[in-house]
Amino acid sequence: MTRPSPSTAAVARAILAKDLRVELRTLQSVPAMLLFATTVFVIFRFGLDRTRLDGGLAAGVLLVTILFAALLAINRIFVAEREQGGFEAIRLAPADATALFFAKAAALLVYLAVLELFALPVFWLFFLDSGAGLAPLVPVLLLLDIALAVTGALISPMATNSRARDLIGPLILLPLLIPAMIAAAGAGQHLLAAGGVSYEQFGTWLAVLGLYDLVFLLIGWAAFDFLIED
């Protein structure tokens, strides 16, 4: 006498809808990310003593800012599940726990997309002479966002269930994300080059990012169950 069980996609949708509703209501993560990104741009303005950026420097400033803003959201993304019993509620239900991984990755992806919709124009306004490189940068950022979301959704539950919750996540994620950052910066530095948009190695970098996303998506899918058992 087994009860009907919801599909993984249905559970993931339920969790994602819950997360987005709570975020819209409490505004805990996204506004902090926007404010943080803007402030970091200002800090780079003085840290580098530059008012205009191009090439590798421009890509570096933009991507590092996105990376650190993402860490803010990643640190918080599982806290409600731990403090308010979401981990247990999902394990009591006839639901596939992997849905939680996909839902959290999707929520992070939404947060990052909103961040970039805001941060790219600000970055352009602050530092760029031409916005021509920003359009081809979109697929690069999208693949980078997937990398941040997938690794974040995989590492964050470990950090959240540990004693050093705010420390462990960034500590592991920073080195883990270096290849994705290398690839995104590799593509971005040519797109934002001073002499105009260049697509040097563009395909290679997209392929590296895509492979990175795929590998960690598969690992998350296979291993996530082990993170929320007890």
Binding site: R3, S5, K18, Q84, G86, L92, A93, P94
Partner: peptide, 14 residues
């Protein structure tokens, strides 16, 4: 799972 109802110390509510 799905046939058990748990009412523990934690309400399991958001």
């Amino acid at each position: 799972r799905g046939r058990i109802g748990l009412l523990g110390h934690q309400p399991l509510l958001y």
